[in-house]
């Protein structure tokens, strides 16, 4: 029998105060998959996550974690989840260790040894007995990650996890996430508006805008999609020619620069064609499509709702 997906969202919708914030999100997450949930501020990322972990009830649709419905079998579903929602809020009047002990006490299967292990994993061993009051945001983030992975969940949900981490901390964090996913088989759900972060860390990315998922793709596919930039003397003519003869949609970037996705066409042939048509090429470059381009293409110009 096939194992059920770690996370399945079916037509998830949420209306708060007459405003539809999440408009029918469908997602499937498999074990060992690092999933990026990318969207501008106010796109409905956190609302979606809150519905996944049962903090708010969906207006419509369902959340299933490891085969258990969050609405009908909350305890079993949530046994498989570790998460940080929005910010790593901890009890400030307790020490880091006391915080972890509090939360570990709610789940019988977490041993003292495991707590010490995760503290070491997130690199907090020297400060864990200080009050959280004295922690920097980055340290609280680490503590948040520690409490999320403490129970060895099958699904790890991290909302803006690298907020406040220094560059070294981010690298460590990426390493840790990869280890958890590829060695321990966790499915990791990372929400972020930091494109580079998602690009460097995730296997699959969904871009959400105004409550709807616009696209879901493998990150490597985006990266392989080549984009060409030409610097030439007559951009208007070049755009027309490319459209009429090659069915390529080019856009003008600057005064003398155009750019286009050439897909399967050969760049040599295109250049030959343009020169034959009397256009003087000054410069031509292949630009790797970054996630940022895709993200901006899809979301630019939209106001935050």
């Amino acid at each position: 029998m096939q194992q059920p997906a770690v996370l399945e969202l079916a037509n998830l919708r949420k209306t708060i105060k007459g405003k539809e914030i999440v408009k029918g999100v469908n997602l499937t997450l498999n074990p060992s998959q690092i999933f990026g949930f990318l969207g501008p501020n106010g796109a409905g990322k956190t609302t979606t996550i809150r519905m996944i972990v049962g903090l708010i009830k969906p207006t419509e649709g369902s959340v299933t974690i490891c085969g258990y419905s969050v609405a009908h079998n909350f305890v079993k579903a949530l046994s498989n989840v570790g998460c940080i929602i929005e910010s790593p809020d901890m009890y400030k009047y307790l020490t880091g260790m006391e915080n972890l002990l509090q939360l570990a006490a709610m789940d019988k299967k977490i041993s003292k040894q495991r707590i010490n292990d995760v503290v070491e994993m997130v690199g907090l061993q020297h400060r864990v007995n200080d009050k959280v009051d004295t922690y920097s945001l980055g340290m609280r983030q680490r503590l948040g990650i520690a409490q999320a992975i403490m129970a060895r969940p099958k699904l790890l949900i991290l909302d803006e996890p690298t907020n406040g981490l220094d560059p070294a901390g981010m690298t460590e964090f990426r390493k840790l996430i990869r280890k958890l996913a590829y060695e321990d088989g966790m499915a990791v759900f990372v929400s972020s508006h930091l494109l580079l972060e998602i690009q460097q860390m995730c296997d699959v990315v969904s871009i959400i805008k105004q409550g709807s998922v616009i696209t879901t793709t493998l990150v490597q596919d985006i990266l392989h999609d080549d984009k060409i930039e030409w610097q030439l003397n007559d951009p208007e003519k070049a755009i027309t020619l490319l459209r009429e003869h090659w069915n390529i949609v080019a856009v003008r970037l600057k005064n003398d620069t155009i750019s286009a996705d050439i897909g399967q066409h050969s760049l040599d042939k295109l250049n030959e064609f343009l020169i034959r048509e009397g256009i003087a090429l000054t410069y031509c470059s292949t630009k790797q499509h970054t996630l940022e381009d895709l993200f901006l293409d899809l979301t630019v110009g939209d106001e935050i709702v």
């Binding site: 305890v75 989840v81 929602i85 809020d89 709610m106």
Partner: peptide
Amino acid sequence: SSGTIKLLLVRNVP
């Protein structure tokens, strides 16, 4: 008000 309620309500405890 401190947001820690989230910590409690996402555990496997009703």
